[in-house]
């Protein structure tokens, strides 16, 4: 070490900067490279959503960049068609009404269960936990028919409640898995300190565990919301033809037509329906934070 020449002078600051830039260059190249690669399909979709239907089937979407300022090749027709289609406004409301409780309900239930599985002592909790997670693999399609029959008996078919509960149940295995994993890694001393401070399980849960589990809850919330928002299958089966409660995905599907003749509208439809999930992602991204546990326990 001592034999290395040391840079001392201010004029070398520039060299330091340069060196720093050079060493961090691969990082930037990798990040930007992957981000761009990942965005190409979506960019293509975005460009396509402004093109005419005939153009779509004759030339590649990137050809617009040959004359990017030739606005004749763009139009808003697809968006207009999507946004003004019958019942779109109501469908947006319906999608929200379906997605918000269908996200909050499983978050709450999964966090409760995760807490019990991680920090309560009762026989068989490992087995219970693993069985719950194993249910991740059950194909939804297998459950549709028996559940629908029950729904018809109980009058839940075509109701929001029916869809909420179904989405909640389908989301639970992932939620329990993610959140249990996070809660289980909280420092045991913290939970015990709260117990000694006189907190019941309810208080430990609401005052200590919940606030500290925000990153896990936020990530699950994003996934569950996305999944529900973009879901077509569950809505199709459990809501049936009930147009009053139909979400955006159903309206979009109907827009395409029975023979798929208007598939080009999906390009615009995809972006219209993507706005809300992206808002949710950005809103929750700030909760994926560093160092929530800093300062609590050492080591």
């Amino acid at each position: 070490m001592t034999t290395l020449p040391r840079r001392r002078h201010g004029s070398n600051k520039f060299m330091d900067r340069l060196e720093q830039a050079l060493t961090s260059a691969p990082v930037h190249i990798a990040v930007i490279g992957i981000a761009v690669l990942w965005t190409i399909p979506t960019a293509g979709l975005l460009v396509s959503s402004f093109r005419y239907r005939e153009a779509l089937t004759q030339t590649g979407w990137w050809t617009v960049f040959q004359e990017p300022l030739n606005f004749a090749q763009y139009h808003l027709g697809n968006y207009v068609d999507v946004l003004t289609s019958q019942g779109m406004g109501q469908a947006f409301l319906n999608s929200l009404v379906i997605s918000i409780p269908a996200t909050i309900i499983p978050i709450f239930i999964a966090t409760l269960a995760a807490y019990a599985l991680a920090w309560m002592h009762f026989p068989g909790r490992q087995i219970l936990f693993v069985s719950m997670v194993a249910l991740l693999v059950v194909p939804l399609q297998m459950t549709l028919i028996p559940v629908l029959r029950t729904y018809n008996l109980l009058g839940l078919a075509g109701t929001f409640l029916g869809v909420w509960l179904a989405h909640a149940a389908y989301g639970l295995p992932l939620g329990i898995y993610l959140i249990r994993n996070y809660i289980g890694s909280l420092p045991g001393d913290l939970i015990e300190a709260a117990a000694v401070d006189g907190a019941s399980h309810l208080k430990i849960f609401t005052r200590v565990v919940l606030p500290l589990s925000v990153p896990a809850i936020a990530s699950f919330a994003v996934f569950q919301f996305l999944w529900v928002w973009n879901d077509l299958l569950v809505a199709l089966v459990y809501l049936g033809g009930n147009q009053n409660v139909a979400p955006v995905t159903l309206i979009l599907r109907n827009l395409v037509g029975d023979r798929g003749q208007d598939w080009h509208l999906l390009t615009a439809g995809a972006f219209v329906s993507m706005i809300v999930p992206l808002l949710v992602f950005f809103a929750l991204q700030r909760y994926f934070v560093r160092g929530l546990l800093a300062g609590s326990v050492k080591g």
């Binding site: 981000a35 965005t39 399909p41 590649g60 973009n230 995905t249 979009l252 439809g269 995809a270 992602f281």
Partner: peptide, 22 residues
């Protein structure tokens, strides 16, 4: 960067299928 890489998850698969065909 995160949002861009996350973007595919936000697109409904019906929409995404169109672009992958392209």
């Amino acid at each position: 960067a995160k949002a861009l890489i996350f973007l595919p998850m936000a697109i409904s698969f019906v929409g995404a299928s169109v672009i992958w065909r392209f």
